[in-house]
Design a protein around this nucleic acid. Structure first.
Length: 285
DNA sequence: TACCAGGGCCTTT
DNA sequence: AAAGGCCATGGT
């Protein structure tokens, strides 16, 4: 467990001795789209219909206005605090490249997001950049999500979206992705696809089930597995990761890291995106 | 097998 | 100012 004592004080809940955690590295590394940096340095996000405002300073993580019960019931799991990142870093640091990547952004954690939100968000992410993905998700929530506060909306559930037409979705400006969202919503709302049930499936079985959705290929399926279903063995292979793996691991990614390759991938992804020179310049594009 | 839709923001030139 | 490239997939 990457945190120590938890207690409630003056309406806030505080976690002490938080390790392996940076809000910026975790919330701004392309795995989630619903967190905003506020002017006072705290981050505000919406998860499973709950708004949180959090700040981290000197290993002390504060959930402003959140009761202890909600932190224990929701947020510890969401931030993956039950996982020992020291153990993972120790293992992958046997590899010099991964050691560098993990040391470059030691505060990355892989979030355990809501499966439907992760699936939907990464359907919208395809062939897109992060600012635009955030815009699409924002508009989807503002148009169809439950209002939780001023300019704060929950992510709309599959039942809500399944009832919509392509025309209804046009204000989201999702382009060709709109029909994929509707297919996913109808399959999930209709009970044809039970996302929660996929948690106990193997990654291969869950991926195959997700890929029956029109518009969900291997990349989006792997994102849903890793970020939504807690399958840390899944490696979403985007252009950058493919390029990095080809250059750094021509003989294949070390097999001993396979059970948590998705976490290793997250360090590597951040590293190659932010650190020019991490990859050989001669790389074929 | 190769190519392109669909859309808008960011980076590079 | 213009061009190229994006956390892809399905159709032709």
């Amino acid at each position: 467990m990457d945190c120590g004592l938890i207690y409630e004080k003056d309406g806030d809940t505080v976690l002490l001795d938080v390790s392996n955690f940076s809000l910026e590295e975790t919330l701004d590394c392309g795995q989630c789209f619903r967190w905003t940096l506020l002017e006072d340095g705290s981050w505000q996000g919406i998860v499973r219909g709950e708004v949180a405002t959090i700040s981290l300073s000197g290993g002390r993580l504060t959930f402003h206005g959140a009761p202890l019960e909600r932190v224990e019931a929701l947020w510890l799991d969401y931030f993956d605090f039950h996982r020992d990142y020291n153990a993972i870093k120790a293992a992958i640091s046997a590899d010099p490249v991964l050691a560098k990547a993990a040391a470059y952004a030691p505060g990355i954690r892989v979030l355990r997001q809501d499966p439907w939100e992760a699936l939907c968000s990464f359907i919208l992410s395809q062939n897109n950049n992060i600012p635009r993905i955030k815009g699409l998700v924002d508009r989807l929530c503002a148009c169809f999500g439950e209002q939780l506060g001023e300019a704060l909306y929950a992510f709309p559930g599959p039942e809500r979206l399944a009832a919509l037409s392509l025309e209804d979705l046009s204000p989201v400006r999702a382009g060709f992705r709109a029909k994929y969202i509707l297919d996913a919503a109808r399959r999930v709302a209709g009970g044809e696809l039970n996302l929660e049930a996929l948690r106990i499936s193997t990654a291969e079985e869950a991926s195959a089930a997700l890929r029956t959705i029109h518009g969900v290929g291997p990349k989006v399926a792997d994102c849903a597995l890793l970020y939504g279903l807690g399958k840390v063995e899944a490696v979403p292979a985007d252009v950058w990761i493919k390029r990095a793996l080809a250059a750094l691991y021509p003989d294949g990614f070390p097999r001993e890291f396979a059970p948590f390759a998705g976490i290793a991938q997250q360090y590597l992804f951040h590293y190659v995106r932010h650190c020019p020179g991490a990859l050989p310049a001669t790389l074929g594009k």
